[in-house]
Design a protein around this nucleic acid. Structure first.
Lengths: 331, 331
DNA sequence: GAGCGTCACTGAATCGTAACAGTGAGGAGG
DNA sequence: CCTCCTCACTGTTACGATTCAGTGACGCTC
């Protein structure tokens, strides 16, 4: 018989239930315009349960021309906590809808070979992908959701408003009386894209309030360098009194550098981070930061992907800004 | 024609090269006992390049009875930095060998339905899986690599020696003159498994040196609670002077708690963490910790998986202990 | 009671690859 | 000259699901 592989197939189920394999498929997929009697449906379902039948993802993918994989392209950046958490949450959420998340870093360049090979149901990108790449994926029936950070053309785009992050940081500092603001840029050049957007947001916020544009210094993850930057800001005339850090890591480094040269936050220099890192409450002093409410973002992303793939439209996403200020002590 | 889907198939390549589809398959898979002339091989390869042919993962999976997916089951724990990095590195490494990593949290329980559905080439687990689960996967031709933490039965097992972590922490504290040692346990009950092993290692190390067993207190990620624990250790008679933290997060919380009650490290209480978190150098004071050299671990894991899947045995892993002490200032 | 329409199914083709089982050409051996 | 073997391929089937195109049986109308 067909018992060479040990796999339980739809044919086995059909035999057990005494119906055709076609019927099994109809029952399991709840095919719209097929009338199946309750009795037959029951028989099939019982057989499925009895035999422990699980449809083969490969066979289904071959037939349908697409798999249940969702391909997520990540920027080639030492992944920060936020992106990691996003991946994790998104994976869980997609799983609930029968989709499997596969992540890939943008580096081993050819996106195309990968999606042609895997035939994913959807692709999600976290950086900007060329319009032609997007077009050819769409043409191949793949749902593309772009969380790219740039000014995207895609109407169905999901964007974490990077520039708003910078804006909110400046808002906080301005609200607490700071008039000359610094910006701590990360050392890693691969973060340039995000940096530009966040910094633009900060610049705009300063301009809007009639403040000088932020004084940008690089603060790599190195205490000495961070200390030098801190002194530079502090001893400038007029002095910078509040700093927006690119993210919480940078903020931690800056705070450590400040300690090295005897400066303290927020007295000498207020510091505000981004990400609400798990360790932010335990910084010295506890770090004020911007939380990008990931559950909101993930919820939206998952909805876009799932509704795109299944064709069903899901309940509209709540219109919540996925950013919030977490005030602690550092700013 | 067959041009309904837009996909380039092996048949298209065959047509282009003027050979049979079988020959294309033989060339591309380098089938051992088939003689293919250099000339034909070239023609096929050229056609592949010209048409941009990429074999369908689904069709291949269906035919072979297994996909190129590697399924990694993660413990249902708010994933710490280490595990995250492990997943990331492993994904990159597997990718180089044409395998795709899919992660899943142990929670939506039935492992079985998932692997039956996806037919992965290999499964990697980070927790203990029942012997029968392993047996049935093996029976289905799936390579199982268990990085479970328990005393595993599996001979081909890959273990991060959790107990050694505790041992090394105690070693460091003992070497710097501490005789009564504390252990800061995490609040999350899901970490119990790892905790037990690390703690056992610490206990054993204490016993070996004739020291009292470590004084275990729970240090959740909450400053007040951490402060209370710190005071408890410090004011005990005789006083605990050095503490092994379950991980760097716990260490950060403890250090923050200590500041709250005016204690400092390492003077009042030396603190040593685990993980060498990215932020560890920026702790106050910079955190001494145990680094579990992930590249080593990942390299081993990847080798085990790849060699298991491909059948080829890869160069033997360097016998390096994947743990090292990183001395900073806190202990 | 012939015609028509639903109902509740079933038969067979199809997706793209791998690999078994040939097959004709050419050379070696007797 | 006939047989046998190797070489270098090719024809065809199978993997397991989806789905189009039927197909009897039955009820209803005129």
């Amino acid at each position: 018989m067909a018992r060479r592989t040990g796999r339980v197939t739809a044919t086995d189920v059909a035999k057990e239930a005494g119906v055709s394999q076609t019927t099994v498929s109809y029952v399991l997929n709840d095919v719209p315009h097929q009338k199946i009697s309750e009795q037959t449906r029951r028989k099939v379902l019982d057989a499925v349960a009895k035999l422990g039948y699980k449809p083969s993802a490969a066979a289904r993918a071959l037939r349908l021309g697409r798999s249940d994989l969702v391909l997520m392209f990540l920027p080639d950046v030492p992944v920060g906590g936020t992106l990691t958490a996003l991946v994790e949450l998104l994976g869980d959420e997609l799983e609930r809808h029968g989709l499997n998340l596969v992540t890939r870093r943008e580096r081993h360049a050819p996106l195309e070979s990968l999606w042609r090979e895997l035939m994913p149901a959807a692709v999600m990108t976290t950086f900007d992908v060329s319009a032609e790449d997007v077009a050819s994926m769409r043409a191949a029936g793949i749902h593309v959701v772009s969380a790219g950070m740039g000014p995207t053309v895609d109407p169905g785009v999901l964007t974490i408003p990077q520039h708003l992050i910078g804006t909110m940081q400046v808002e906080r500092l301005a609200a607490t009386g700071h008039t000359l603001i610094g910006y701590a840029a990360p050392g890693d050049p691969r973060l340039q894209g995000f940096l530009t957007l966040r910094l633009d947001g900060a610049r705009a916020a300063c301009a809007e309030r009639g403040l000088e544009p932020p004084v940008v210094l690089e603060v790599p993850l190195d205490i000495s360098a961070a200390a030098a930057a801190a002194e530079h800001w502090h001893s400038a005339v007029p002095a910078v009194t509040g700093v927006c850090a690119y993210n919480d890591e940078t903020a931690f480094a800056l705070l450590a550098g400040m300690r090295r040269v005897g400066l303290s936050a927020p007295g000498d220099l207020a510091v505000i981070g981004v990400d609400n890192d798990k360790l932010a409450p335990f910084a010295m002093p506890p770090l004020t930061t911007i939380d990008n409410n990931l559950d909101v973002v993930v919820g939206r992303a998952a909805r876009m992907i799932v509704s795109g793939v299944t064709g069903r439209s899901l309940p509209a996403p709540p219109q919540v800004t996925p950013l919030s200020l977490v005030v602690r002590e550092s700013a």
